[in-house]
């Protein structure tokens, strides 16, 4: 391949990173919620979709995209707090399948609710004006909005990392994910921490939905495929591992981007093939601890 080929490959890799960024944001919430609450949140895709529609709703009322970037995670996270407090909390201590079934049903209800409120057809979502067009990144022109998605994801991950590593709540979350009982014995009301984590995870999913909206438009069903991909990412990265979610998210994004370039008909299957290979070699995922579910 000549330089042109190399540039194309590099651009496609970069596109994979942008795609992976959305997966990372979803997977990190899934992983955080699973690691702390042992809840497999099947409604995570619905929260993602809910975030995109919250953006549509706010834009129709004249809110700027930048204002939505702040407001959407707060709205979706607040809804997440209600869901944890009133629907999931009564199910703790009953085994992993109860909250799984609950969130599975909740996802259908959220999708149906959005269909009733916004119609069954998809809607376009404008890229904010200042982020339209392409930017020269040295190897070629790359859509500015995708660059923004990568940057925003990096900023969110940095913020999350600082929150987990540098704050008291972060310490409680890191400890509580390993041993909730000792955290209770040391005086922490763990149920409040779980509430916070669910709100945080769903808020980030909502933000991911808003970020994805200009890339793919919005539709009531947009959460379905992306949930499947986010699950692949958490399984590949290791359930409950945040570092795993980041690495695997980018890996999955790049895998999709490269297979769409070389063998487009394989693009959808490739990530599942990747998952199969990882599971054969490391059943606990790249960064997971063995026996988390036993």
């Amino acid at each position: 391949m000549g330089t042109l080929g190399f540039d194309l490959l590099a651009l496609q890799l970069f596109a994979g990173v942008a795609l992976g960024a959305i997966y990372v944001l979803l997977a990190i919430g899934l992983s955080l919620i699973f690691g702390m609450l042992t809840v497999v949140n099947f409604a995570h895709g619905a929260f993602f979709m809910f975030g995109a529609y919250a953006g549509v709703f706010l834009a129709a009322r004249g809110a700027s995209f930048w204002a939505s970037l702040i407001a959407v995670p707060l709205i979706v996270g607040a809804f997440g707090l209600l869901v944890e407090r009133f629907l999931i909390r009564p199910l703790y201590g009953r085994g992993i399948d109860y909250p799984l079934l609950l969130t599975f049903g909740l996802a259908y209800m959220m999708v149906e609710g959005i269909r009733i409120a916004f119609g069954t057809l998809g809607l376009p979502f404008d890229t904010p004006e200042s982020l339209q067009g392409a930017t020269d990144i040295g190897i070629g022109f790359f859509p500015t909005y995708r660059l923004f998605v990568i940057g925003a994801t990096a900023a969110i991950l940095l913020g999350l990392w600082l929150f987990l590593e540098r704050t008291r709540y972060g310490l409680i979350i890191r400890a509580g994910a390993r041993d909730p009982q000792i955290v209770r014995v040391l005086g922490v009301d763990v149920s409040r921490v779980w509430l916070l984590v669910f709100g945080l995870g769903t808020g980030i999913a909502g933000l991911a939905g808003l970020l994805a909206a200009p890339l793919q438009g919005v539709s009531p069903e947009m959460g379905g495929p992306v949930l499947a991909e986010a699950f692949v990412v958490t399984v590949v990265g290791g359930m409950g591992s945040l570092l795993g979610a980041v690495v695997a998210g980018l890996l999955v994004g790049v895998t999709v981007a490269l297979t769409s370039l070389f063998v487009p008909e394989m693009a959808k299957v490739s990530i599942f093939a990747l998952m199969a290979v990882v599971l054969l070699v490391r059943p606990q995922g790249l960064f997971g601890r063995p026996g988390l579910l036993s």
């Binding site: 310490l171 890191r174 400890a175 390993r178 041993d179």
Partner: peptide, 27 residues
């Protein structure tokens, strides 16, 4: 009231300092 369980329950991923800080988070 404080309790030191038989299994000690040192939190695996945390440093010694963070384990000690954990004893202060609720105070």
């Amino acid at each position: 009231l404080a309790y030191v369980p038989e299994e000690r329950r040192i939190v695996p991923g945390l440093s010694v300092r963070d384990n000690l800080r954990l004893g202060l988070v609720a105070s």
